[in-house]
Structures are given as C-alpha cells and as structure tokens.
Computed example of a mutant assay.
Amino acid sequence: MVQIGKIWLTDTAVWIQTADGRKACENFEEYPRLRYATKQQRENYETDAFGIHWPELDEDLSFEGFFHKRKETTLYKLFIAHPELNAAAIARRLGMGQSLLAHYINGTKTLTPEREKLILTEIKKIGQELATII
C-alpha cells in the first residue's frame, strides 16, 4: 500500500507525494468527470488508505494507480469515450464493488473474458433500456 504524505490540486492535475518523497500526478484531462468539474467540485474530495474519491462527481483514483502505467483496456476506452456512464451504478447493477470495477476499468486488476463479457452485457442492457424511452 502506498503511504501518502500530501495531496494537492493544480489547475490541470491532482498531485500526490508519498511518505518517502515520491511525487506523481493524474491529469484532469484524462478523466471526463474531473475535466468538466468546477474548481469547487474538484476540491470536494475524500481520501482513505487506498485513494481519492469525489462523491459529487462519482470519480475515484487509487494511489497505486498514480505510479502504474495505465493499460487502455476495452472498459477504459468505453468509460473515457462515454463519461455519462456511471461506474458506481453499473457496479451496483452487477452486485460488484465499485472499487473492483474501477480497478478493472483502469487495468490495475486482471479482467477475465467472462467477467468482461458480463460487464459489457450489462452496459448494453442499459443502452437497450434507454433506447425504449420515448
């Protein structure tokens, strides 16, 4: 687990510094919910031992993710292309923890083909339900 000593925001990124002095950032540009958020919304975050959570924006970043090269998985590309998708709501529909789905999306946990199919099928169901609305 990464021990965090400091967290700060700039106009373009969220930065962390570990207890041993390493620094890393995540650019808001890579996260549509953070990209389009106001400064006040970005500043309204919570932390725990694992990462940063923006309740109002439904966005989570894990501290470990700051130091890992992101794999652009199918889910990652889908969620980046469609920021209107709510990962927390999709996780609830699947009976899955939001943090686990976030790990799958970010590529920090390995996704089996069966689990990926289950997630994509649920997203397609949501699309079909929305398509029936007049």
Rank of each mutant, 00 (worst) to 15 (best):
K69S: 11
K69N: 10
K69G: 07
R70K: 14
R70Q: 08
R70G: 03
K71L: 10
E72P: 00
E72R: 10
T73P: 01
T73H: 00
T74L: 06
L75H: 02
L75T: 05
Y76P: 03
Y76M: 05
Y76W: 15
K77E: 09
K77G: 01
L78I: 09
L78P: 03
L78T: 12
L78K: 08
F79K: 11
F79M: 13
F79H: 04
F79E: 04
A81L: 06
H82T: 05
H82A: 06
H82F: 09
E84N: 13
E84F: 11
E84W: 13
L85Q: 02
L85W: 07
N86D: 15
N86C: 14
A87H: 08
A87K: 14
A88Q: 11
A88G: 14
I90Q: 05
A91L: 08
A91I: 04
R93E: 04
R93N: 10
R93T: 02
L94A: 02
L94R: 05
G95E: 12
M96L: 15
M96I: 12
M96C: 09
G97Y: 01
Q98R: 07
Q98W: 01
L101D: 02
L101F: 02
L101N: 06
L101R: 03
L101I: 09
A102W: 02
Y104M: 13
N106F: 09
N106V: 00
G107T: 10
G107C: 08
K109Q: 13
T110D: 10
T110H: 09
L111P: 04
L111A: 06
L111I: 15
L111Y: 01
E114A: 12
R115D: 04
L118R: 12
I119W: 00
L120V: 07
L120T: 09
L120C: 02
L120N: 08
T121L: 02
T121W: 00
T121K: 06
E122W: 00
E122Q: 13
I123P: 03
